[in-house]
Write a protein that binds this DNA or RNA. Structure first.
Length: 595
DNA sequence: GTAGGGTTAG
């Protein structure tokens, strides 16, 4: 029998643990006559690698109980095991370490990075007596992931200035940051550089390059890089799918998706997001169903996309079904999912459920508050919308964004709080550093017009730095009508007429004005005029959901498969109404209202 | 013989 020394015992223990054979590894460790620090450490890190953090910590205690002193490597492993649950304890262990090398410093740095505490991470980073490429890359990658791409690039530059050669991880993180910034030119420079030093074939670097070209709208270049990758992993496939998805090439995306043999959750999500971005909501649900059938469990990203599709279709039934699924997986309170739920319920008109979802979220971000404030305003709960906004200002450090201010103006306008609304409108730039856009102006014009301050509304229209929206003209005109401001009405009508000659929006407005007055022949005339002059109007579309299927009806293009039958039913309804109400019904206007 | 970092989807 060969004699085993302490080195071979440790190698054996570690070998078993690394391939997941925990019981065998522990059994060998139990028989090991040389239980030195190496072998204990092998067990601790092996257990951690198998996801048995608690057991690993138990072994650490046992080791201390046996009087074996931990070394640098043991500390790094222990910190790795403690960092997520007990960061303070990990820090204490680190403080007590005799000799701290660059790896242990990086381990503690990474702990803060992992926790998302970039301030503390930066402090550790600055205090480190020595940094290597791993310490740099931990910082660079997290800055980039956290959306602080500028800082990531700054560090990357600083690193090169400090004479450290970036490894593949640093390059991929830096390219990732450049992709976020859509800095194609600099990205291309790095591409040339990594090609020159023979690192372009690295799968991490090339995946980032695929992302860079995709993010900048260059799918062909992204594909060129993708095709050169030798050992493609699932992430680079997903990145390429996203590149196609985000550039409206869904057919290519789907083709690639079908070629992946081992699909990950990211593969499904890339496709779902693509269809969502392309407003192909039926496909979103189709892929979601296929995903469930394939046995893949949806995650936060999937749910927020699918809920967003429900919101866009205002499909309360479907949305509730998805809500149930998030509940089963315990994801309903997550900040992304919760926000999507708030938005879905609000857009579908179920404001009570929306409020409930919002109140149950333990963490809320800017988007969550925006969804709630906007939802309340658009559902006619103007005062509550303003209260929620004030609560946000009082309890959080979130700065109001364009959309929140729009909702606030909308709310003020609808509760008749003209002065308050105007105060917000006038202080947008000075207080919140947001330049009012045409939509904000429309709200302000609407506010003034509704309150009878029509001439002020007109003045505001004239002073706009951007072109007024059609709705603003409509608001002004309706103010004139309500308050009998004939002079302004005349000027406004002339202006609209003038606009109508120039662009399609004017004609749409004109036809809408006629429609609201019930002057159908004029509406038809205007539309005909538009057609003759080659002006296009986005066709109006409405839909209903029947037994899980969506039926779409376009205002100008009657293409529904059961069109003849539908018209038949309408005829029946018409004659029924004629009998019941003894009244003439114009089938044309009836159809117009229904479709 | 024991240890640290990275690419996609919201």
């Amino acid at each position: 029998m060969p004699v085993r020394n302490e080195v071979s015992w440790t190698a054996l223990v570690s070998g078993y643990l690394k391939c997941g054979k925990v019981d065998e590894g522990m059994e060998v460790f139990g028989r090991n006559p040389f239980r030195d620090v190496f072998s204990w450490t092998a067990v601790i890190s092996g257990l951690l690698g198998s996801g048995m953090g608690l057991r690993a910590m138990g072994v650490f205690k046992e080791m201390l109980g046996c009087g074996v002193l931990p070394n640098n490597v043991t500390f790094v492993s222990v910190v790795r095991g403690l960092r997520l649950n007990k960061p303070e304890m990990a820090r204490r262990v680190f403080e007590r370490m005799g000799k701290k090398d660059v790896i242990s410093w990086t381990a503690i740095l990474d702990m803060y990075v992992e926790m998302g505490d970039m301030e503390e991470a930066r402090r550790v980073f600055n205090d480190m007596p020595e940094r290597n490429e791993v310490s740099w890359s931990a910082m660079i990658s997290r800055y980039s992931q956290k959306g602080n791409s500028v800082e990531a690039i700054k560090l990357f530059r600083q690193m090169i200035e400090n004479g450290i050669s970036p490894n593949s991880s640093c390059f991929s993180s830096a390219i990732n940051a450049l992709a976020n910034l859509k800095a194609l030119y600099t990205g291309k420079n790095i591409h040339a550089h990594v090609t020159k030093i023979g690192m372009a074939s690295d799968v991490f670097i090339s995946s980032s390059l695929v992302d860079l070209y995709g993010s900048c709208g260059y799918c062909t270049d992204a594909r060129l890089v993708f095709d050169t990758i030798q050992n493609k992993n699932v992430v680079c496939w997903n990145t390429m799918i996203s590149a196609y998805s985000s550039n409206d090439q869904l057919d290519e995306a789907k083709k690639l998706f079908d070629q992946i043999t081992m699909k990950s959750i990211g593969s499904w999500n890339s496709l779902v997001t693509g269809y969502l971005g392309n407003e192909q909501y039926d496909k979103v649900f189709e892929v979601f169903n296929d995903m469930l059938l394939s046995g893949q469990t949806p995650d936060i990203s999937t749910f927020s996309s699918v809920l967003c599709a429900c919101a866009s279709l205002t499909s309360l039934g479907k949305g509730k079904g998805i809500h149930g699924k998030t509940f089963k997986l315990g994801l309903q309170r997550d900040v992304f999912v919760g926000t999507a739920l708030v938005d879905m319920y609000a857009k579908s008109g179920d404001i009570e459920s929306s409020k409930r979802a919002f109140s149950k979220m333990p963490e809320k971000n800017e988007v969550s508050w925006t969804a709630m404030i906007q939802g309340l305003a658009e559902n006619g709960h103007a005062e509550e919308s303003l209260e929620t906004f004030e609560e946000m200002e009082r309890t959080t450090s979130i700065k109001p964004n364009e959309l929140i201010l729009l909702a606030i103006l909308f709310a003020c306008s609808h509760c008749g709080l003209v002065n308050k609304g105007l105060h917000y409108f006038n202080s947008m730039e000075s207080l919140y550093n947001i330049k009012p856009n045409e939509r904000h102006y429309t709200c302000a014009v609407d506010m003034l017009s509704r309150a009878g301050r029509v001439s002020e509304a007109e003045k505001l229209m004239m002073s706009m730095p951007c072109e007024p929206e059609v709705n603003a003209w409509a608001a002004l005109l309706s103010g004139c009508k309500t308050y009998g401001e004939d002079e302004i009405a005349e000027r406004t009508a002339a202006k609209i007429q003038e606009l109508a000659e120039k662009k399609s929006g004017g004609y749409v407005l004109l036809s809408n004005v006629y429609a609201s007055a019930g002057k159908w022949p004029e509406v038809m005339k205007t539309r005909k005029l538009m057609k003759e002059r080659g002006l296009k109007k986005t066709g109006g579309c409405s839909w209903i959901e029947v037994r899980n299927e969506f039926h779409l009806f376009y205002s100008q293009d009657a293409t529904h498969i059961d069109l003849i039958e539908i018209y038949g039913v309408l005829e029946l309804l018409k004659s029924d109404m004629l009998v019941r109400f003894q009244q003439k019904v114009d089938i044309g206007s009836l159809v117009n209202r229904m479709i």
